[in-house]
Amino acid sequence: MDTLVDIRGLTKYFGPVKAVEGVTFSVKRGEVLGFLGPNGAGKSTTMKMLAGYLTPTSGSATVCGYDITRQTIDVQRRLGYLPEGAPAYGDLTPLGLMRFAAGLRGITGAKRDKLIQTSVERLELQSVLQRPIETLSKGFKRRVSLAQSILHDPEVLILDEPTDGLDPNQKFQVRNLLQQMAKNKAIIISTHILEEVDAVCSRVIIIGDGKVMADAQPGQLETRSAYHNAVVMRMPTADAEKAEKVLSGMAYVVKVERIGQWNGTAQLRALSAGGADILSTVHQAVSKAGVTLQQIHVEHGRLDDVFRKLTSKSRNKEA
């Protein structure tokens, strides 16, 4: 796999305000990188620098081997970029917008029409092709901008919140599209929707306060969650107290939570110490105590929990 995006110590200050500090990572062909972080963490700023819109204060980055500050035009030729909020000229039609972008990319004639057609089909824009963009719904506007960004079949795609404002069906469609395209591209998407990471990303980077806080595969990140390998059990309410007593006495259980109680049954969650595999020990101990287990399963861990842990830590440190 070849590296298509390579970022080294990218830093951006707006006057005295730090937006991004020393961000370093690289993305290979075939990877879909989920770029996570709270609002104002520096996701968009990093993407804007990669797209050649903002000039870094220090550090460097290359896209397809071209330097983002010295060979900006070469970078932009090979890059598909969806800016935050998907801005587009409201007076143009989707067709007009794509023709304009194609024109600036030097794509003309039959080749242009063919590429536009492919893009339109991929995002199902046929019905609105001749309508001014300002009259379209939010979901269509977003998809028009997306269509523009993939028009020239770029090797690198940088998409700032590509599914924002889409309904669940449209989100599904866009995620499918991203997965289809992932094979021969490097894709970076920023998102607030953590389920999206599991759905499309092969790798996650969490940034907070302008710095990279975590860089791992989604599955790896989940193991850092307090809920990783937690065991959830359902039992008759009458047995719950007994089970709680047994569980809190166990060495590998850090905490027992009663997470629900209805129709005479109760649900308990036993959090594992250090994410150790406690299923069989818990199962044995509880059964031995005479608890009737109606259901038992293991949790993988939660990305939102890890996200909160990582990004609130950095915030507290700042304060």
């Binding site: 797209a51 819109y53 035009i73 932009q76 801005p87 972008a101």
Partner: peptide
């Protein structure tokens, strides 16, 4: 931002 991230000087 759309305009200036297309390959245009």
């Amino acid at each position: 931002e759309f305009l200036m991230t297309l390959p245009v000087r």
